[in-house]
Computed example of a mutant assay.
Amino acid sequence: MGKEISLIAFLDEVVSRNTQHYRKDFELDAQKLRDALNSPYMDERIFYFMSRPNGTWCVLERDVFLRDSDGYKIWTHYADMPDGIEAYRVTITGRRGTAPMGHVVKLNYREQVQRVIKVAIPFDDVELTFYSGEKFRMPMEQYRKQREEIFFEYGAIQNFRCCPKSEAELYRVISMEHRLQKCWQPKTKKGPDTPAR
């Protein structure tokens, strides 16, 4: 997989080279990576990052593959305008002081986003963790309708996690994407062997 690198330093170089406007977006992305160091979930330490000529985005990989989540909407929004996008899968494996360390895989955004659109799965529930310590799961539709009441009753949300019916199916979809990112090709069925002459 290659040696561990300082992720924020690496991505900052990408932004310096590729993003001409709204470079300050990257400050939010860098903080998101620092915050992920405290996540108890490994899948909340894997992100997709894009540098565009006009800004950056950093979204959780799991959300990218959950249709209609914010991460999915952000990642697929540029599918019809991929020119100038540099994209990476960013995996946090540890820290050096407060700096997230890990690995990056360069993505061909033009091809990869089409795979995302094709294989993303729906999600129904959200898991909410509050700064108060409360934690519960509820249907997304219920959350949308009761967002204000929930805030007034439980306070600010510390972590918002989209949950599909099957975590195993989400894991399968993401695992297949990782194989494709390594240039794996699915086997194609061969026709019947023709006899040699």
Rank of each mutant, 00 (worst) to 15 (best):
K145H: 10
L128Y: 06
R96C: 05
R45E: 05
V15F: 00
Y171C: 04
Y88P: 01
A120E: 01
F26L: 06
V90N: 05
T194E: 11
E167P: 05
E111Y: 11
I85M: 06
V173E: 03
C162S: 11
Q146N: 14
Q142T: 15
P164L: 05
Q31N: 13
L107P: 01
G84R: 03
A9R: 14
T56S: 10
F160N: 08
D83Q: 13
S6G: 12
R34S: 03
Y154Q: 04
V90L: 12
V173T: 10
K73E: 12
S51P: 02
V59G: 02
I92E: 01
N18Q: 12
A9N: 13
V173I: 15
T194D: 07
I157G: 00
R17L: 09
R17K: 15
A87V: 08
H77F: 06
D70Q: 14
E149W: 06
R110K: 15
D43L: 10
D80I: 10
V90F: 09
L37K: 04
E134I: 12
E4G: 00
G94V: 08
M50Q: 11
V173K: 06
Y72P: 03
T194K: 14
H103R: 14
F160D: 06
Y143Q: 01
T194F: 06
T91A: 15
E134G: 02
L37M: 13
T76S: 12
F47E: 01
L11I: 09
D125C: 13
L7V: 11
G191W: 05
L11N: 01
T129L: 11
E177V: 11
T91N: 13
A79G: 04
F123W: 07
F47S: 01
A196N: 11
K32C: 08
G155S: 08
I174E: 04
I8G: 02
R17W: 00
L128C: 05
F65P: 01
F152C: 04
A196I: 15
G102M: 03
D43V: 06
V105C: 08
R62K: 15
K189D: 04
R96K: 15
L128G: 01
M140T: 07
C163A: 10
I5P: 00
R89A: 11
I74W: 07
E177L: 12
G84T: 00
V116C: 09
D193V: 12
Y154W: 08
L60I: 05
S175P: 00
V59L: 09
C58E: 02
K3P: 02
H77G: 08
P195W: 10
H178D: 12
K3I: 09
H103W: 07
R95C: 03
S6W: 02
K32G: 09
P82I: 09
D80A: 13
Y171E: 14
W57A: 11
D35P: 00
V14M: 08
D80F: 07
A30T: 06
Y143T: 04
A156M: 09
L66E: 00
Q142D: 10
F151P: 02
F10G: 04
V173N: 04
K32L: 14
R96V: 07
D125L: 13
K73Y: 02
R52A: 07
R144A: 08
K135Y: 01
H77T: 11
G55E: 03
A36N: 03
T76N: 05
T129C: 06
K106N: 11
I74P: 01
M42A: 13
C163W: 06
A196L: 14
P122I: 11
D25P: 05
A9E: 15
E134T: 12
P139F: 05
P195Y: 12
I8V: 15
R137C: 07
E149C: 01
